[in-house]
Design a binder for these strands. Structure first.
Lengths: 341, 341
DNA sequence: TGTGTTCTCGTAAACGTTTACGGAAAAACG
DNA sequence: CGTTTTTCCGTAAACGTTTACGAGAACACA
């Protein structure tokens, strides 16, 4: 069924070496011969067997994306990743690279799955998402000398790998600025309790902005909850019942914001009227919620494309003439003002 | 760095053939020898090179999932697929199979991408999503004799491949039943205008249920729109402005429902009060919308797992003792009653 | 014409596995 | 003890590529 390079060689009555060189655009092959080879390749519908190529070249031409769903996401996952993956994959495809998606169970199999990818050499590089502040996956990959890039920063591994992150610190800053400009002084912050790095970055920005405005940081207005609707639902009343009730809340996660708004509704508190609400990462949920939630929006598809470029630039096999480069970028979010603040 | 089967053989001073047989659990190897091989494998941190194995066995041990985002999904994709992929991937991983995700651009590159996967033998089988009523991908794969399964049915290809689908017909039926039981007679249906098969199935159910209740089908109450929020926003006023205004709407897509509700709001029509709204595929959007939308919910993770099983059962290499089997299943949706109807 | 250069191609090894085949040694059997 | 069977292992080929090497032919140059 599938025609190999041997079939082409036999068909043209030349050697397989010449066929291969002709197909790969090498210089030492006669123009006429090349023409005939390419024609025969089309005619016999030839395309190179990837396994053979991988074996010989020691490269699989595929990139693994490691995605670990949060334990709470039973039913629907984060809409975040599809457009990111679309962009990532689109750029990789331009280099004839495939995308392999490895999803851990919500538990801790991820590390194990990662080892398997690396040790059986199923991918040439890895892209990590959901980076933790201390991330053992990064430690492992660094130690193993396996190429990787991350969506999100981490304190692990130093500046030795490409990373692309959203500027959560700046978003926290701008959210507070906006609220202060509108007269708020008591601003609550709600973020996930996991070790996810963006929670720290967000809180840094929040704190710095408050200090800049001469507002004391009240620990009673900062709460951590599980990173889903339930978490937001559970933790929001806690800040609302603090002695001096906040007039605004910044949520560091869209799902938590929705749960939080439900809790608010049950307390008779209407976002946009009785309290201001801002969400750090926008999703369709925010746009169609009622009232529509003011939120900070990332550009996910371009981020996926960019991270692919950054990863490739770090790989010797793909780097340009200047050689491999480690690029790290932090992208701003765009504020989408709606009705909730 | 990476140890091969040759390293093991050298280390133990035996032949590579014996090492391979020992690792693969073949019978013709001494128990003591096997023990030593396994020990050395652990010691030298050996794991088989997948490229070598693929080449020899003619199987890549990876399954490709083809996902084609709808053109309208600029910013966020369907939350639908992440949990489905989680389940699919989890089951595949149990068989040591990897998942490759191939996303077409919103345009028509999908067919081309598919050819590439098949012809370069990068995957052993393919899973198709977003099945069209007439689906040229199915035609192509059938003709090429390449194993595949689909999420969603199609009229193409006959009953020659495994497929798992949601029972949209039944959902359309039940939605109408529910609305009629609540006194509605003028029920509108809004579905995507693409050739996506589920739109036809839904409409069949809707029509049959109306007839069963002795209600004439009014073409003015059926509208097709682009499969996103904008489509729903544009098309909903059309049915509302029909001579005899409907008292209920069934949306065949969550994004269209949200756009539709926005249009309703602008017309001063409140879902749950002035009109009943039911959505066929539930998402978090439905749950947190205000009013919360009554919707039919699939169980996506189990569906992913099940489709993996069905695909594997159709592959000679994985089929059980009875040999390869083609399984086709249609799963019911669960009604989640909320506030909008 | 002799020598050096360029162009073009064939040969064969290599990547890391799996597996059919055969043979030596050990065990079983009479 | 001779013969047959079983156990165990080594050899080598094969999967489909890419590529280092070398060789023959054509060409250029003196």
């Amino acid at each position: 069924m599938a025609s190999s390079i041997h079939d082409l060689a036999r068909h043209l009555n030349i050697s397989i070496g010449t066929v291969s060189r002709a197909l790969n655009g090498r210089a030492d092959v006669n123009a006429e011969t090349r023409r005939r080879v390419l024609e025969a390749a089309r005619e016999l519908n030839y395309s190179p067997n990837q396994s053979g190529r991988s074996l010989r070249q020691g490269a699989t031409r595929s990139i693994a994306f490691m995605l670990q769903p949060h334990p709470g996401d039973q039913q629907y996952g984060e809409p975040f990743f599809i457009p990111f993956l679309t962009g990532l994959q689109a750029r990789l495809a331009e280099y004839d690279l495939d995308l392999m998606v490895v999803m851990g169970e919500p538990g801790q199999y991820q590390q194990e799955r990662l080892r398997r990818v690396v040790e059986t050499r199923r991918a040439d590089a890895v892209v990590l998402a959901n980076t933790r502040r201390e991330d053992d996956r990064i430690d492992y990959l660094s130690k193993a000398g396996f190429p990787f890039a991350t969506l999100g920063r981490s304190q692990s591994g130093g500046d030795t790998y490409p990373s692309l992150d959203i500027d959560f610190e700046r978003a926290g800053n701008e959210a507070v600025d906006r609220l202060v400009a509108r007269g708020h002084r008591r601003i609550a912050a709600i973020r996930p309790s996991l070790d996810l790095n963006f929670g720290y970055l967000f809180l840094d920005g929040y704190r710095k902005a408050l200090k800049r405005h001469g507002i004391e940081v009240d620990p009673g207005l900062i709460a951590d909850g599980f990173i889903n609707e339930t978490g937001g639902y559970q933790v929001t009343p806690r800040v609302m019942l603090s002695k001096d009730r906040p007039t605004a809340i910044v949520f560091n996660n869209d799902a938590m914001a929705l749960g939080g708004c439900k809790a608010l509704a049950e307390m008779g508190i209407r976002p946009g009227h009785d309290i201001a609400v801002i969400v750090i990462v926008d999703t369709p949920l925010c746009r169609y919620f009622s009232p529509a939630l003011t939120a900070f929006r990332p550009s996910l598809d371009p981020m996926g494309r960019r991270l692919a470029e950054m990863l490739l630039a770090s790989l010797p096999a793909f780097a340009g003439p200047e050689g491999p480069r480690i690029i790290r970028e932090v992208w701003p979010l765009e504020l989408v003002a709606r009705e909730s603040d």
